[in-house]
Computed example of a mutant assay.
Amino acid sequence: MGLPRAGESHVVVNDVNDFDWRGHDVIDLRTGSFIYGRCPPTYFQKIVRAVQASAVRVTDRR
């Protein structure tokens, strides 16, 4: 996923951003893509379940 070493990166599951695609915080990579890395499907599902199970605070970024 392009993250630093294990133990140095964290996924925050109780605070999410709500934004219209292509906000000011989405930056083009040198390749012209917005994809920095891929998240393995099983890990992504684990994150989704954790977000759904937590008391989520949504921050409107529009």
Score class of each variant (00 low, 15 high):
F19K: 04
G32E: 12
G7T: 08
C39Y: 08
N14T: 09
V26H: 07
G37E: 07
Q45L: 14
T59G: 08
D15K: 11
Y36T: 12
A53W: 01
Q45D: 13
D18G: 00
R61L: 11
G37V: 13
E8S: 04
D20V: 03
A55L: 07
W21P: 14
I27H: 01
E8Y: 01
P40S: 12
R38Q: 06
V16I: 15
I35G: 02
L3S: 08
C39T: 10
A50M: 12
Q52C: 12
F44H: 13
G32L: 09
P41H: 12
S54K: 06
F19C: 08
D15L: 11
V56R: 01
T59I: 13
T42P: 03
V16E: 06
V51A: 00
P40E: 14
Y36W: 06
N17I: 02
N14H: 15
Y36P: 01
E8H: 03
F44M: 13
V58M: 01
A53Y: 01
I27E: 05
R49H: 12
S33F: 02
A50K: 13
T42A: 11
F19Y: 13
R22L: 15
W21Y: 14
T31G: 09
I47E: 05
A6N: 06
G2T: 13
E8D: 09
T59Y: 14
P4H: 05
D60L: 03
R57Q: 08
T31S: 15
A6C: 02
R57K: 14
G23I: 04
R22Y: 13
H24G: 13
T31Y: 01
Y36E: 06
P40H: 14
D15G: 02
Q45T: 06
I35P: 00
S33D: 15
R61F: 00
V16T: 11
R5G: 09
G7I: 07
G7K: 04
D25G: 04
N17S: 11
I35H: 05
V26S: 09
V12T: 13
S54A: 15
R57T: 14
D18K: 06
H24I: 12
G32P: 03
D28S: 02
G7A: 07
Q45V: 00
L29I: 01
S9M: 02
V13T: 15
V56W: 01
S33P: 00
I47H: 04
V16L: 12
Y36V: 15
R49L: 14
I27M: 01
I47F: 07
R57G: 00
E8Q: 09
P41E: 08
A6Q: 07
D28A: 08
G32Q: 09
R5E: 15
D25T: 03
N14D: 15
H24E: 12
R22C: 12
D28Q: 02
G37M: 08
L29K: 09
C39R: 07
L3N: 11
V13E: 05
S9P: 03
I35F: 01
I47V: 15
W21C: 07
R22A: 12
H10V: 10
F44C: 12
T59D: 14
V48H: 08
V58H: 00
S33L: 10
L3P: 02
C39A: 07
S9G: 03
N14W: 05
F34Y: 12
M1T: 13
S54I: 10
D20H: 06
G23L: 07
G32Y: 08
F44G: 10
F19Q: 08
V26A: 10
S33M: 10
D18R: 07
R38I: 02
A50L: 13
V16M: 08
